[in-house]
Structure formats: structure tokens, C-alpha cells
Nucleic acid binder design. Structure first.
Lengths: 250, 250
DNA sequence: AAAAAATCAATCAAATTCAATCAATTTTAT
DNA sequence: ATAAAATTGATTGAATTTGATTGATTTTTT
């Protein structure tokens, strides 16, 4: 049996069943495990399917991408709620800065305002923004591999070419004494600069970030409006004494 | 049995069965393996079928369903060869500008030089560069959706912060009178600027680009070394009179 | 948490298929 | 009719594909 014939059979079975076991394929094609494994490897490389333990699975373009960044996002549901609310704050004609990070990424699907312009330092954001036909500017700079964010001198310089109606910033820590913090000083400086360039600044922080603090300071609490989903009244009151807090309910 | 008759039989069998083994064809036509092999080679060259190990397969035009990845790769093989050669020109410690586009994208897997820095305006390039742990800077600017390239005033300004040992530029047309050209003036200006910022400039152009010209001029032929895979001696001599040409052999 | 079972990637040698070459034959041009 | 060109089939060693085997990894069961 020729290679393309096996490939055709594999893909066809996959279309019908969504997932297919290696053993089934061995049965159907009457050739060895090794051969099927090699076929699956190749087809995976060609982006025709996704290998899984025990066989292969269909990959739907969009569902696949979603699951990738679903994996990368703990507390996805909360982040989605926060993102949806934050997106509702954007108004027609706004110039927006979207900070890199998974929380701000969640905003994009919910953006409905027309005629806006978005500047971002998040490479992952680009694809989703362009899919929604939102005119997008990317700041220049060095790419931080771990977070796929643009940072550094070049990024700051590039950012300072703009000014914004609103900016949306992700943080790793929110603390009553230490303010908003994040582990990387370079990233912190990026976020700080964006806040200073914006008329209004919003910090997105799900409740796991509250009362936490990390190495590098971004800004004082009062320099930005905090958007969170924490519902504990006592904690809330404490922060509300220092800054504006908007709470998203589930 | 005459050649056209064999060809007709081969194609007809192929239509019916989608794939056909060499041995079947030997049986049916009653001629030698060698003859059938030659037939298959020729029919493949005429784009009537695709040879595979053990026989031949129908080539479906409905590659629409295929991934963006594959669509983006016309002349992939030639581009890979050119890319591989271009990558070999990069030396340890170089500062490189990589223009957006599929040809320069093909270079990245073959880059072996150590301690280099890459600046690019191609968003697609980033993922591959980071995978190879190459420190990467992205220029800022507005994102052109169609080509995933960063262009415009911001991009130019961002680019001018750097200078390069070498730059590698993709073009759409190479013409003895009109020089290097590309359809979008904004992109042309980006490429032009990069060339001016580089000690040495290389233009990557597979042979389908030769003797073509498009709207916006990038540079004169002599402003960059041309890397191509065209082998026609006469054509080659014509270009070599005007600029340095490096030919990649397959 | 440990053991068992299943699945995996990597490697190997055998079998198949391949491209390249050459001489014999057929076709074509003169 | 003769030489040149093209086509053919056989042969060669090289390249590819294949199935089996190995020990490692993952999943399931105990």
C-alpha cells in the first residue's frame, strides 16, 4: 500500500470519527505500527492532524488555537469575565494600549467599539486583533521569549510616540502598601510608561493577585482603576479606601 | 506501445484509483519498469500527477482546505535552497536585518552562526527565531494584515535606531532596468531603508522573480547582492554585468 | 504509591524502489 | 540507405521504505 493511500485513509477515518486509535489504523491498512506512527508524525508536521497518545485527533483550526491558550491560562473563567467587562469600557474612537499578558488577551474577543486604534506590546495579541479587523500598532523592541512581550529601551521609546485614551494593564501583584507589581523590572517600566501616557489607566487583576507582591513596582494603587472579581467585602473596602475598584460579578 | 498511449492509460488508471503502483502499470502496459518510471517522471514534470515511492498519486487541486502554512509556500523547495544558502552567509557576531516574507522565513531554520542579533519586521519570523534561541528585536509600527509585516512611519523610525552588518531582503521583481521592486510603496521604503542601514545587502529572489517588475522601486540592482537559483547562462550574464549575483544550485 | 500495561521514539537490517548508465532497438532525417 | 536521434529494457549501486526490536515514557490498574 502506497503512502498517499494510507494518508488518505487515515485522514478520512479521522474526518468521520474525530479521533482514531493507532490499532484501528493498523487493522485497516494492514501494515505495521511503525509505519502508521511514521505516517502520523508526517501528517502532524503537515498540520493535517494532531497526534495524541494512542492515536490521532482531528484539529479544527480555531478550536485548536483556543485550547492552546486555554492551557496557558489558569483561572480562565475569571479572566474572561474580567476581560469582558474591561472590553465594555472601550468607547467608539478610543486610542487604547493593551498590555501583553493573558488577561488583556481575553479582552479582545469582547471588544465591540468601532473606529478604535490599539497599540500593544503583546505578540500573541496581534493575531486576535487583526482577526477582528482592529487597526493595530505594535511597539518595537526586544522580544522576551517567556511572555512573548516586547520590552526594553526600544519598546519604551517606541511607546512614547503615542498617547492613549485608556490603557489596560495586567499585573502579578496588588498590595495595599506596595501597589501594583510584576516580576520583571523591564516589563514593569513598560507598564508604568503606558499608564503615564494614558488619560485613564485600568489594571486587570483576578482575585489570586490580591494581597500579593512581586519584585518590580509598576505604580501606586491610586494611579490606576483596578478591575477585579474579588467579592470579599472587607478586602474590597480596604482597597476602595485607596483607589477606585470595579468588581465584576460572575 | 506508444508513449502517448501509455500516458493516457496511466492517467486514466490514476483518475479511477487516486493512487497507482508502478507494478500495476508494468502489468497493464506490458513494458519495463524503466519505461514506466520515465513516463511518470515526465508526467510529473507536466504537473499531471505526483510521483510517490512505489508509484504515483493524483494531485488534487483542492488544497484550499490545507493549512495556511502550506498555502504560504509556493516554490517552497527553491526558497528553501536559497534560504539555506543565505543563512550560510551569516557569521558569528553579526547584526542582521531579516525582511518580512516567506523567502527570508526559510532562512531561519538554517542559521548556524552564534552570538548574532536579528532585527525583523516580520511577525511570522518571531516564533521561529525564538525557537532557535536567537535574540530578536521587532521594529514597531502598524501591522499590514495581508503580509503580517510591520510598516509605516513608526516602523521606519524604529528601524533607524539600528545599523546592520547584513540585511536580507525579499522582493517581488528583479528587472535589468527597473531594479528591485515590490507592489507596496510602504514596504518598498522599509526595504530600502534597511539596505541603507546595512554594510552589505542581499536580495533573495527565486527565478520566478527575474525579469519581472512591480509598482514600487526598492533599489537599483547594484545596491544589493542578488541571491537566486536561476541557471540560464544568458540571463545570468546579463545581471552579472550590473551587480553581484550568487547562484544556488539544487 | 507502586506495579502493570500500553504506547512511544529510536534504531536496525531486510526488502523494495529508485536514478543513472549502457547497449540494443526503433524511429526519424537526410 | 545511412547516420543521427530517440526510445527501450537490463543492470548497477544508492536511496527509501518497511517491520521488528529495543528500552523509555505515559497511562491505567492495583
Amino acid at each position: 500500500m502506497l503512502t498517499p493511500e494510507r494518508h488518505r485513509i487515515i485522514l478520512q477515518l479521522l474526518q468521520e470519527k474525530e479521533v482514531v486509535k493507532l490499532h484501528e489504523l493498523v487493522e485497516v491498512t494492514q501494515c505495521s505500527e511503525s509505519t502508521i506512527r511514521r505516517d502520523l508524525s508526517q501528517l502532524e508536521k503537515e498540520k493535517k492532524l494532531k497526534r495524541v497518545h494512542g492515536g490521532a485527533a482531528l484539529l479544527q483550526q480555531k478550536r485548536e488555537e483556543l485550547s492552546v491558550f486555554e492551557k496557558s491560562t489558569k483561572n480562565i473563567h475569571e479572566k474572561q469575565l474580567i476581560g469582558k467587562y474591561a472590553a465594555s469600557l472601550i468607547q467608539d474612537g478610543d486610542c487604547i494600549y493593551l498590555d501583553a499578558g493573558t488577561t488583556t488577551l481575553q479582552m479582545i474577543p469582547y471588544i465591540e467599539a468601532k473606529n478604535i486604534v490599539v497599540v500593544t506590546n503583546g505578540i500573541m495579541h496581534i493575531e486576535v486583533l487583526l482577526e477582528k479587523d482592529i487597526p493595530t500598532y505594535l511597539v518595537g523592541g526586544v522580544i522576551k521569549k517567556k511572555t512573548n512581550a516586547l520590552i526594553g529601551r526600544g519598546a519604551i521609546h517606541s511607546l512614547q510616540q503615542y498617547s492613549f485614551d485608556k490603557c489596560f494593564i495586567g499585573v502579578n501583584g496588588v498590595h495595599i502598601d506596595f501597589g501594583y507589581t510584576t516580576p520583571d523590572p523591564e516589563e514593569a517600566f513598560m507598564k508604568q510608561t503606558a499608564i503615564h501616557l494614558s488619560q485613564r489607566a485600568f489594571v486587570l487583576a483576578d482575585h489570586s493577585k490580591l494581597n500579593e507582591s512581586t519584585f518590580a513596582k509598576i505604580a501606586e494603587l491610586q494611579e490606576a482603576t483596578m478591575i477585579t472579581n474579588e467579592t470579599d467585602e472587607e478586602l474590597l473596602a480596604m482597597y476602595e479606601a485607596k483607589t477606585t475598584v470595579e468588581v465584576v460579578k460572575s
